[in-house]
Each structure stands twice: as structure tokens, then as C-alpha cells.
């Protein structure tokens, strides 16, 4: 059962025309931008289902392009996303594709950053502006962006998770949800922590210093 806020019902405050196809799309792309953690140089969007059939009409394309530049769903600049992307020389590709047994409004985003860093994510826009990120870097995961979300990529070995949670506990940050994923034992694992409080930058830095920590990304709660 979905956990709704009243601001999923009265909201989001957004630029039209479609909460699922415009606001939700912008939100997924924005999260992609945050996970990449740097400005985007190149992007390919693979659109599935209803996203594929109707994306042009709903401005889904503009919303996605705006999102990967860090624009939020209520930003009136979304309308001009293609012009803004052109100014930044971002190479943009759109294609249609079957992403499997997923929600009808699903997109895969392949991003390359200015330092040549690459990531890919898959997200679904599940209605009323709500979204779910279901895959990062080919690992199936599940989070909504409704909470402050910390994503760590680290080597799967004993003690690392304890170190992370200790740092959070020392900063009085309460973990609401926590999930760990790994392709197989001892490899690069992904951990998702959704917290009730905001996580200050100093805490992120501290977590980043943990040995065997590959990367730490913070996605602040998206309000609207």
C-alpha cells in the first residue's frame, strides 16, 4: 500500500500538463542528475509503455531534459529545457524500448557526466506526481524520493553498514527505511537509507571517508 501525504493529493505544485508525464518525469530525471553528482554531458532516454506512446504531447521530453539539468517539477523553465540544454551543449537521445514487466510510465536514463562518469537508472511515474526508482546501475532497487535518501556504493564486506549507521546515529539522524542490494557476495553493493531528518554535508563527507566506500550520494527530499 502506498504511503501518501496530503501534498500528493493537493500537489505537487507543478508546471503542466501531466502529473505523471511531466512532473513525475522531471522528478525521475532530477534524481538521475543527483545520483550522477555532476553536470551532464550526454544522456539517452529509453521510454517504455505510455511514456513511449505519448511523451511528446505531455512535454515529457522537456521535463526529462529539464530534470537532468537539475530543474524541479515546479520550475517554469522546464518549458525551455531544450534551449537550456543546447546552451550547455548536452547531447540528448530519445528512443522507445520495452523495459519488461514494469509500470506503463517507465523510463531508463543513461547519463554521462562532464568527467565521463556514467550511470543508468530506471524510474516509473506511478501517478499523481509520485515516482519510484526501480534500478540503479543494473541493480534492482526501490525508493520514492519522498524521504531524504542516501545511496552508498561500497564493497560488500562485514562492518561497513555498521559504520554508516553509527555516523548517522551520532548525528541524531533517524533511519526510516533501509535496504541493501548486491549482485553477489563480496562485490560492489548498493545501500539505500531513507531518513526522517535532513543529512548535512559534513555527515556525507564522514561516510565518504569510510574504507571500501566507493561513492555516497544524497538525494534531498523533493517537495512540491
Amino acid at each position: 500500500m502506498e504511503e501518501y501525504s496530503i501534498f500528493d493529493m493537493i500537489g505537487p505544485i507543478m508546471v503542466g500538463p501531466s502529473s505523471s508525464h511531466t512532473a513525475g518525469a522531471a522528478k525521475i530525471a532530477y534524481i538521475g542528475y543527483k545520483i550522477l553528482g555532476e553536470e551532464v554531458m550526454e544522456v539517452t532516454f529509453t521510454l517504455h509503455g505510455s511514456f513511449a506512446s505519448t511523451y511528446k504531447g505531455h512535454g515529457t521530453d522537456k521535463a526529462l531534459v529539464g530534470g537532468i539539468m537539475g530543474l524541479l517539477p515546479d520550475d517554469e523553465n522546464l518549458k525551455h529545457a531544450f534551449d537550456l540544454a543546447k546552451e550547455k551543449n548536452i547531447v540528448i537521445g530519445f528512443k522507445e524500448g520495452d523495459l519488461g514487466n514494469v509500470h506503463p510510465n517507465t523510463v531508463r536514463i543513461d547519463l554521462t557526466g562532464v568527467t565521463n562518469k556514467k550511470i543508468n537508472i530506471i524510474g516509473s511515474s506511478i501517478g499523481a506526481g509520485k515516482i519510484k526508482i526501480i534500478n540503479i546501475g543494473n541493480i534492482d532497487i526501490d525508493f520514492t524520493g519522498d524521504y531524504t535518501t542516501l545511496i552508498t556504493h561500497h564493497i560488500d564486506q562485514p562492518g561497513i553498514i555498521a559504520k554508516i549507521t553509527t555516523i548517522l546515529a551520532n548525528s541524531n539522524i533517524n533511519i526510516a527505511f533501509m535496504k541493501v542490494y548486491r549482485p553477489s557476495k563480496g562485490e560492489m553493493a548498493v545501500m539505500l537509507l531513507e531518513t526522517d531528518e535532513n543529512i548535512p554535508h559534513s555527515v556525507i563527507e564522514e561516510i565518504n571517508k569510510i574504507e571500501k566506500m566507493n561513492s555516497v550520494q544524497l538525494i534531498e527530499k523533493i517537495t512540491g
Binding site: G11, G16, P17, A23, G59
Partner: peptide, 21 residues
């Protein structure tokens, strides 16, 4: 009409139904 031209509205619950409430 405002929604259709990418103007700012409040989805309630969605943008496609944002005129009713």
C-alpha cells in the same frame, strides 16, 4: 487551459484533473 500550456498549477490529485477541486 493554463495547464495545457505548461503553466503552473496544483495537481489535485493529478494535473489532468487539476480543474475540478
Amino acid at each position: 487551459e493554463v495547464n495545457a500550456c505548461m503553466g503552473r498549477i496544483v495537481a489535485c490529485p493529478t494535473a489532468g484533473s487539476s480543474g475540478v477541486l
